[in-house]
Amino acid sequence: MESIIEVNNLAKMYQNKQALNNLSFQVKKGEIFGFLGPSGSGKTTTVKILTSQLRYTSGRVTVLGAAPDRGRKANFLGRIGVLTDNSGLYDRLSVYDNLALFCRLYGVPESSLGGLLDTVNLSADRNTLVQQLSKGMKQRVTLVRAILHRPEILFLDEPTSALDPVNVLQIHETLRQLNRDGTTIFLTTHNMQEAEALCGRVAFLNNGEISALDTPLQLRLQHGDKTITVTTPKGPEIVGQDAAGANRINELIRSGALLAIHSNEPTLGDIFVKLTGRGLE
């Protein structure tokens, strides 16, 4: 599959601090790529470099076929969407006026807003001033602003931080639909559930370096301890994924004592801790 983002040996220095060190990865067209790491690991720095907001110290970065910082602003920015957790809105304007401004900046008909507002359940609030919205509603407005021009790549930097579960589910569903419609999504988060729910592949970023990169399933299989937990009336019991374990499970099924069975794959958070020695928060 064609790569839409290519990063080779990327490094970024802030004065004497190394923010990114020898970062290399590729994002394929049409995938949802997750960048997982704790606060300060370099996620936002990476997004800013990829979206032409920040210059890098060394390495090679290609987004949509060219470097993101070489005088290609209008054309480049018209093909990407960016959503961060502190994306600002005009408080004194209505939801509709905020979005209509960006329709005109991107050359998109305002008539498309109706459907997008429906998608994020904000149709009833189209004439509400932004200053009267909750944080979750504001985040949905900024999401619509980021996608109203149907970007080829959508960069999301902690898009659901501090949102309640209902809003999170709503935003996730919108993102999945957008991805099905062809938008590549680059998602940075420290929320492993979010990454597991959305991403086809994830990279673990720690202290500016990638410590693992694969599909969530492969990472879990690689780092799992190959055991199964069976629950019987006497309580949980761990058996191995081998002939003895199979016999034990068979026995429990025959005797009707098997209440539940779960494979013991680690979560992405567990794997991150195992690989880096630190948590994702």
Binding site: Q53, K73, N86, S87, G88, Y90, L105
Partner: peptide
Amino acid sequence: EEKEKNTLRALMLSPAS
């Protein structure tokens, strides 16, 4: 005010020159 509320960055990230 646009800078303080991060709306200027949104304009800068749009195709507007």
